[in-house]
């Protein structure tokens, strides 16, 4: 059945060999790159924080620290700063890291073990309640509700923000936990979050996860987070 091909370009065997070669190399490269990436994406430890080593995915003990998200002039985008005592928000100049603590549910001495347990429960809850089919996390998920990547840093939850005021709580973490347990009691818009039966422990764990997630280095996503205030939307 095989006609004699007249040119290499119409030879099935040439294309079959090329396809095999290309697929093989691409697959091997992907595997090598994956090893490298996995190495860089391991969760950090409390020791890293003590030694002031920056990790892409830090240790869960970051919940003991204040977290910022500021422009890094060298990398050209915003990066999370953990426990930065002197962050100049205008220039983004950071002169210290892993120093300034911040209480999380009244404590800033969560041990590595405790913090890990909290994060573990938080992640399980996030999956069990299917947060990702309304929200985006690290930008992936559904588009029915706000992105949660840096939700911990959202001005709406700060002490002057409307969301914290609405729940009547007097810290960010308490406000978030209160909201999560009864979201349909604290509507901000006609589109509300449903009641997912989140318990107080689950809520605390989820908030811990959100704080931890805000400290992940996402290469500057989302851009300009919370920086542009009072922009005018004339067409609204």
């Amino acid at each position: 059945m095989e006609n004699k091909p007249t040119s290499v370009w119409t030879s099935n065997r040439f294309w079959r060999r090329s396809a095999t070669w290309i697929t093989g190399v691409a697959a091997v490269l992907l595997i090598l790159l994956t090893f490298d990436s996995m190495g860089q994406m391991q969760m950090g430890t409390a020791e890293d924080i003590q030694n002031k080593v920056t990790k892409r995915i830090p240790s869960p003990v970051v919940i003991n620290y204040k977290i910022d998200y500021v422009l890094d002039p060298y990398r050209g985008h915003e990066v999370p700063i953990i426990g930065g005592k002197t962050v100049d928000s205008a220039t983004g100049k950071v002169s210290s890291k892993f120093e300034e603590k911040e209480k999380f549910f009244g404590r800033d001495d969560w041990s590595e073990e405790e913090a890990r347990a909290l994060i573990h429960k938080g992640k399980l809850t996030i999956q069990a309640k299917n947060c990702m089919d309304c929200h985006t996390l690290l930008g992936n998920g559904a588009y029915y509700a706000p992105d949660l990547t840096k939700a911990w840093l959202d001005p709406a939850w700060s002490s002057e923000g409307p969301l914290q005021a609405m729940t009547g709580a007097n810290s960010k973490e308490e406000a978030m936990a209160t909201f999560l347990q009864n979201p349909d009691k604290y509507p901000t818009h006609e589109r509300m979050m449903p009641n997912l039966g989140i318990t107080p422990e689950e809520a605390k764990a989820v908030v811990a996860y959100l704080k931890f997630m805000s400290a992940i280095d996402t290469n500057g996503f989302p851009r300009n987070f919370g920086k542009i205030k009072g922009a005018v939307d004339a067409r609204k």
């Binding site: 290499v8 030879s11 065997r13 040439f14 060999r17 090329s18 070669w21 290309i22 691409a26 490269l29």
Partner: peptide, 21 residues
């Protein structure tokens, strides 16, 4: 670099096939 790594050897495959043809 990666694209070159993938495409360059195809030149060799080409001439090898030509020889066989």
């Amino acid at each position: 670099i990666l694209h070159t790594l993938i495409v360059l050897p195809m030149i060799w495959i080409y001439f090898d096939e030509k020889k066989k043809l």
